[in-house]
Design a binder for these strands. Structure first.
Lengths: 325, 325
DNA sequence: TTGTATGCGTTATCAC
DNA sequence: GTGATAACGCATACAA
């Protein structure tokens, strides 16, 4: 492949002039400009972006760390990020971690290696300290609340979201309230656990450990929940389900096996997935797309201006009452 | 940041030796090796990956071109790609195109610029010729059938999938058969249109143009389909729906408005989404994950061995009969 | 086993 | 306006 030295030779100018023309700088005579572009045509030249990255020390690439892609929550967040990035001329490098700390470290190392200009962490497993250790290696924006750490974060207020739904259920008279969650670790899950403790504690309800259903990520997990629920002696009368997919699985399987929703079991989902509207599910609407968009915008501002005030933006959730709870 | 020259100075060796140690080459004395690693520690050194890329002329990055991410079809394909890539130590650079030719060209240009070692095209809008023009610029694997072009492709045989479902409906006595599709352009859509023409033509059925519902991508589009269906004078008695999401929307909304499935309207979805199982939907199972995995494996083999025989792998689809059709 | 020198393809800084 | 030339940071062929 031809490089700018070849171009310079062909056009009878210096490499500096070639570079100026290629990057649209002023102060180049029209005739040389023309000669350069002709050489570009003739030699079928294309810029080598790796060399540009090395010379400039920047890539206009941002990394996106997330556990998995094929999941409505994360694919919505990444869509939001992607949409914004597209508009700003940035590219996205994907780091799928499966919540393995080892993989998270790999992504952070890539930031150190200057493979990307910044990193958006959608969700993670490793301790905050791990991320803090890479602070000097590039801008990092987190999509989870980081209490007691001065990271840049944009996050959905899951405590408030959970508390809101719990109070609604308490008001309706429910006392045996359980919940379904994707995993028990991680800031989002812990915020929800805290809300669960706090709100239920405030009315003197002591929740049973078996009312917490772990590992609920996909539609089919809802089936499992109903099955377990039916086997229980002391069944919860209501369930908070942190994913509308799982909630839909619960509602649909309940229908199949003759469990009446909401009479026997009230169900409140999260996300406000189109599925929730379609099934008439009560749900807490979460702004995933906006989360991704705002996360990118924050990182972008940071990258372009070099320094922005520390930001911790909280995105609100909104209970949408329909028929299942 | 420290570079290998600083390391060399610190360790009292040459940059070549530093490079050897860093990359684990043999024939370095234990004492120098130790000195280098100590220097690495002391100077808090990390390799600059951009420089590595430039020097090696490779990046171990593959691009993934796709219209949108937040869609069950594409997020499944990309999950398959990602899974394989992770295992091989490759990274994924995302190119979301929204089916805009301009964006597709941008991705191809990036391949020319050597930003990535190869490109996987999940779906595209531009003409084959556009892609053919970039053949020399790097390995490209397509996830759509390319008749009459010698691209490397791995694809789902949508003609066969469609034909299979159509014949099943014909056998059940249906004659007024329509279908719902995401878009009418693109190889996959055209393959389905061809199957529709051929199979229906083979039994002398002349399909009505209004039996084709375009722009069906998401759950909520199913609602629209039912509404339009109800407004029709001559309604189709069966619908092929190229996405289980849309099919679920149809089934659920039909239930709401009192349309009986499959008596009044038979519905066959595609994908075998968990939702299809849950709703008891007849569907054609499509191997999305496998598609992504195989596409990456093919590209990977191409990248590692330099030259592989031209491949056009066809992935089969399988009709799963349940209750809606 | 080790070091020197050169290449990778740009961008950026000067001097003219 | 233009052209040398030095970065950018690493890999590697060739010598020794």
């Amino acid at each position: 492949m031809a490089n700018i030295r070849d171009l310079a030779k062909e056009a009878g100018v210096s490499v500096a002039t070639v570079s100026r023309v290629l990057n649209g700088y002023p102060y180049v005579s029209e005739e040389k400009r023309k000669a350069v572009w002709e050489a570009v045509e003739k030699l079928n030249y294309t810029k080598n972006i790796q060399a540009v990255h090395l010379a400039k020390g920047k890539t206009r690439i941002v990394g996106v760390m997330l556990p998995y892609i094929h999941h409505p929550y994360f694919s919505a967040v990444i869509e939001g990020i992607s949409k914004e990035a597209l508009g700003c001329g940035y590219q996205l490098l994907l780091f799928q971690t499966n919540y393995e700390v080892k993989r998270e470290l790999e992504a952070l190392e890539r930031l150190r290696m200057k493979q990307m200009d910044g990193l958006i962490v959608c969700s993670h497993e490793a301790d905050w300290e791990v991320f803090a250790a890479y602070r000097e290696d590039g801008p990092i924006v987190l999509c989870e609340r980081a209490v007691g750490h001065d990271f840049f974060t944009v996050y959905i207020d899951h405590y408030q979201a959970f508390a809101q739904a719990l109070r609604y259920l308490l008001d309706k008279g429910h006392r045996r309230i359980g919940y379904c969650i994707g995993r028990t670790t991680g800031p989002n899950s812990q915020a929800r656990a805290a809300a669960y403790r706090d709100v239920l504690g405030s009315v003197g309800v002591i929740p049973q450990p078996q009312w917490i259903f772990d590992g609920c990520l996909f539609l089919e997990d809802g089936k499992r929940v109903i099955e377990r629920w039916m086997d229980m002696k002391e069944r919860p009368s209501a369930l908070l389900v942190t994913s509308d997919q799982v909630a839909a699985g619960i509602v649909l399987h309940a229908q199949r096996v003759g469990v009446h929703i909401p009479e026997e079991l009230a169900v409140i989902g999260f996300d406000n997935d189109p599925l929730a509207e379609m099934l008439g599910m009560t749900t807490v609407a979460l702004p995933h797309l906006a989360l991704g968009e705002k996360a990118f915008r924050l990182l972008h501002q940071w990258l372009e201006t070099g320094n922005v005030p520390r930001t911790q933006e909280e995105l609100p959730a909104r209970l949408i009452v329909r028929m299942t709870g």
